[in-house]
Design a protein around this nucleic acid. Structure first.
Lengths: 305, 305
DNA sequence: CTGAGGACATAACCTGGGGTTATGGCCGAT
DNA sequence: ATCGGCCATAACCCCAGGTTATGTCCTCAG
């Protein structure tokens, strides 16, 4: 049977698994394979063999071994830095996943809109874990309407929404500002353009957008006066981003969403004129139920000082 | 034998491996376990079992199965978005690692300073892989001096350095601007401060810094007049970042390095006054050896338009 | 109504990566 | 010279995750 060639990079074959990456990071910190092994709860020979396997897999020497310990190679340090980014993403995943799981001992129930749940909450949860270990958080994610309903039904104590106004029945505070930005792939004609795009030109241009009803779309429609012209309507921010990166057209997304792509120049930002694309990210709660205890702890992490 | 309790989160136990994450992403895109399996080169039962295992591990339903296909749950979509970030980090790792490996067929040799190699190059390499598949890149990473030497010895065709001036014997072009920023943990007194920090106050304050000789340190010393007062001197940007996040004191690092921490509020930015912390990131080459072919392709990816 | 086809689940089996324990070699400090 | 810390090697073991084969369920066509 002729097996179909895999049309997708199988990263697992070329990237060491999380244990190996954490091991490498531990070696960097502790200066010894044995102690790194201990920290990860495996034996020294296991660690030795894993590091050796990584070196074979990557084709690069990562650590200098000596009878007095092990230190990272120059390139080992670089690889370790790349590894750290994977591990950080994994920590965010873990923190988020932990919160999705329904558990008996949760002390804090939170609802958040998708953009916030996706990009900001994991970081907050990691911080919370450091500051108040043992605070089990239960997370419900949905659109803004969903968040509001959970709050009013008293199913959660704290909500996070992106939007223009505070819904009635709720109080809130701005925890961050978010700005929608217009971006295109570097290959797009707009990337070379010097002149800012005016509001009416943006309204006339077909854009890659989230579907109707998303917070992002809502803000854009409001800013343009309900006129956004969809080139594509996609269900997730990631899909929108992917389409834009591949050059399909301009997209309008939160700075949070495209931050990495901008830094790496996979997307470039277009300045627009006369379109108010700022929006507030707010923590909200039922009127009269100002957050206390764990909810207050979490809230305090989201604001500067 | 009483085994020591592991002092580090063993993420591998709580985060699915890369195959599983890629599988989930493929399901999101293709709408079917079977097709997702095929894309990853495994059989349908294997995919089915892996997704089931993930759901068990996370304690959350991820996909809605039907005899007509599978679609992600609401929370499944959220989890998938978190998963995507891990996979993206893994892709960057892969692209970078690929370039470190010395191979016969490399068509382009590049040297880069650490900050650039760490944060920007993987993204460029991914982009290059899309635009010019089959361009095998060989990467040498070191400090600025190292990059310059490789270029002058004609061992690489293209270099990337962060620095104030173009070294003699080389020509170059600015590919990006980078700004050093002063940041502190949200718990640090400076985080509440409204007034900008003046140059002399910054010079008087003990800071968490990279060791002498790093490009970052160089720029800071120049900006302050060689006066930076070290609270801690650490060998890697990541170590500096970690110390700052834990509240040890203010640190001075590239925007690139702390971008994520700023977004997630693990660090907050302090405005400083009268200290020129901008620096250029440059592509450089030997005078008279303007990049052509693959080198030109890569270079064109790093600049907008 | 019925049969075909697509999609997922279940079962039985196999393989190898990665773990463990035990032991040896190397180097530096006492 | 000897001891102790650190890494490598060897021999063994186990189970996670793969495969093939088959069953069930739903939908759609005729």
């Amino acid at each position: 049977m002729a097996d179909t060639p895999t049309p997708v990079q199988r990263l697992a074959d070329r990237v060491p698994d999380l244990v190996a990456l954490q091991l490498l990071i531990a070696v960097a910190r502790l200066g010894s394979l044995g102690r790194a092994a201990q920290e990860l709860g495996i034996t020294q020979p296991a660690a030795s063999s894993r590091v050796r396997a990584m070196e074979r897999q990557l084709g690069v020497a990562l650590v200098d071994r000596s009878p007095r310990g092990s230190r990272l190679t120059e390139t080992g340090a670089l690889v370790t830095d790349w590894a750290r980014r994977i591990v950080e993403a994994a920590e965010a995943f873990d923190a988020g996943a932990q919160a999705l799981r329904v558990r008996r001992d949760q002390r804090l129930r939170v609802a958040a809109s998708m953009t916030i749940a996706e990009y900001l909450l994991p970081g907050w949860l990691i911080a919370l874990r450091h500051e108040r270990p043992g605070t089990a958080v239960q997370l419900l994610a949905g659109n803004s309407q969903f968040v509001i309903e959970r709050l009013l039904a008293d199913e959660v104590e704290l909500g996070f929404v992106e939007g223009l106004t505070i819904p009635s029945g709720l109080s809130g505070v701005v925890v961050a500002r978010d700005r929608l930005v217009v971006t295109v792939a570097p290959t797009h004609p707009w990337a070379r353009r010097r002149k800012p795009v005016a509001a009416d030109e943006l309204a006339r241009t077909p854009l890659i957008l989230r579907e109707h009803g998303s917070g992002t779309r809502q803000v854009l429609d409001a800013a343009l006066g309900g006129l956004a012209d969809p080139l594509l309507e996609l269900a997730s921010t990631t899909a929108v981003k992917a389409a834009a990166v591949s050059g399909a057209g301009p997209c309008v997304l939160s700075e949070l969403v495209v931050g990495e792509e901008l830094a790496a120049r996979r997307l470039v930002r277009i300045t627009v004129e006369g379109v108010p694309l700022d929006r507030a990210l707010r923590a909200v709660w039922r009127v009269g139920h100002r957050p206390v205890g764990p909810a207050r702890d979490l809230l305090s992490l989201t604001r500067t000082g």
